[in-house]
Amino acid sequence: MPHELALGEVFVPPFLVVGTLALVLTFLTVTLLNRYRLSRYFVAPSLVFVAIVAIYTILIGTFFIRI
């Protein structure tokens, strides 16, 4: 059943909020991974980046804001 988040009188798609949060968290995560030189253990960092976005999206969408 499609549903939307109501911010005041504006209906916002939940996927937008979840996606934004996931992106922000991913940026934070990869910055930390780069900072502590842990990213050298990944063969394809871009693939890992997209995977982390997907993981965060699913986690937030499952436990916090239902997509």
């Binding site: 504006v10 209906f11 916002v12 798609p13 996927f15 937008l16 996606g19 934004t20 992106l23 394809a44 960092p45 871009s46 693939l47 980046f49 997209v50 976005v53």
Partner: peptide, 23 residues
């Protein structure tokens, strides 16, 4: 506001895609 939010989602997904294919 739907158009605005849709545009943000579309652009974010697109930029993510470009980020990926830049590697």
């Amino acid at each position: 506001a739907t158009y605005v939010f849709n545009m943000i989602v579309a652009i974010a997904m697109l930029l993510l895609l470009i980020q990926f294919f830049k590697m």
